[in-house]
Design a protein around this nucleic acid. Structure first.
Lengths: 196, 196
DNA sequence: CGATTCCTTGAGCAACCTCAAAAGCGGTGG
DNA sequence: CCACCGCTTTTGAGGTTGCTCAAGGAATCG
């Protein structure tokens, strides 16, 4: 087994525009993809979560044309895992990326509270609780408020207010860590993404 | 020469979710891509303009997974033109689509006036004036106000107001057609996309 | 335990939305 | 040709939402 598995902490750079490297599959955590404006500043483009492929453009250019940064602690493995990718694998990647892009676009429609709620639902993942209590609990590690703002095209103060609202509404339940309630890690206590 | 060339008027459907067909290259005009929500209603996903490929997912599923509608009168040709597409051609399509997605996402950032202005600049194309006056004039046929609103995540009244502003500011110059100034067809009289 | 960075909360305001009415455009048929 | 219809666009007035600016509190790291 190759040990090329990559681990990045929240906020760490995974790759930058123009550097060399391979494509990766996101095994856990979440990643933001940015493009670089001619001026050099980066702006949010897309989101990658568990199962998504990032950096596929390296097969064509062998340099990354986007930048990738960890939104939460995340694990990546080189892609494709073994043999050179089939045309089908490529197409599957293409269509998956298109669907993800569609979801990301949708995150910028509608009321702020809904947008943030939908983003959180996208990031949340089933918690295989080990316990057999049948309740399909969801857990989520939130990105920084600034990252959430970049994704939803809101301001960080607005996102902060909405996360507070969701907490008060009982939709988000902060995990307890040595007495403190975490600002990042939550249990998600409502299934629908359609808020008022 | 095959006559499979497709011509669609403004507002006409090009293909729908679930129907069979091939991929197309947009030769002229502009196209909106929508996805279908589980509820059945369609929501804007992406934009295709001159040179873009749409419906590439048919190579994998042979059914369209998005819907496409003409934003302005447009011409399409089957893709790939002749031989089965190479892996490179696929990848090129993938990365082009990613770049387009990046631009579309950016159309939902910042102030309304800037967003609309940037959209118009994306849609505008160089007018080979036939005349040798050297001025690289730009021309654009605008989509309906509602379509522009869907793309920029604004409301149609807001888009209408901003188009009026741009007209008054001399950035858009309505083409004259038998005495009337067109609401759709404009000369673009400013190069930068960075408004105040 | 500072120092730094991130997050929260408040107050006031501008931008954008909503609702509504009227005008413009395009087609159809008398 | 004109009258009429439906649809799109424009424009106005007023209300909300989300932004800006600012300050204080919580978390993280050396």
């Amino acid at each position: 087994m190759r040990s090329e598995r990559l681990l990045r902490k929240r906020g760490e750079r995974i790759f930058s525009v123009g550097s060399r490297g391979c494509a990766w599959r996101v095994v856990s955590g979440s990643v933001r993809i940015d493009r670089q404006a001619p001026s050099g500043e980066e702006s949010f483009v897309s989101l990658a979560i568990c199962g998504d492929i990032i950096g596929a453009e390296t097969f064509l250019f062998d340099k990354y044309s986007f930048a990738a940064t960890a939104l939460s602690e995340c694990v990546l493995v080189p892609w494709p895992e073994a043999a050179p990718p089939s045309a089908e694998a490529f197409l599957s990647t293409l269509t998956k990326a298109e669907h993800r892009a569609a979801e990301v676009i949708a995150l910028r429609c509608g009321q702020a509270a809904n947008r943030v709620h939908r983003l959180i639902m996208m990031l949340a993942h089933r918690l295989d609780a080990g316990v057999r209590d049948g309740s399909a609990a969801l857990q989520v590690v939130l990105p920084s408020r600034q990252d959430m703002a970049d994704i939803t095209a809101l301001k960080l103060e607005t996102v902060s207010r909405i996360v507070s609202q969701l907490r008060q509404a009982g939709i988000l339940d902060p995990l307890q860590r040595d007495g403190h309630s975490s600002l990042r890690q939550f249990m998600v206590c409502q299934l629908g993404t359609d808020a008022p």
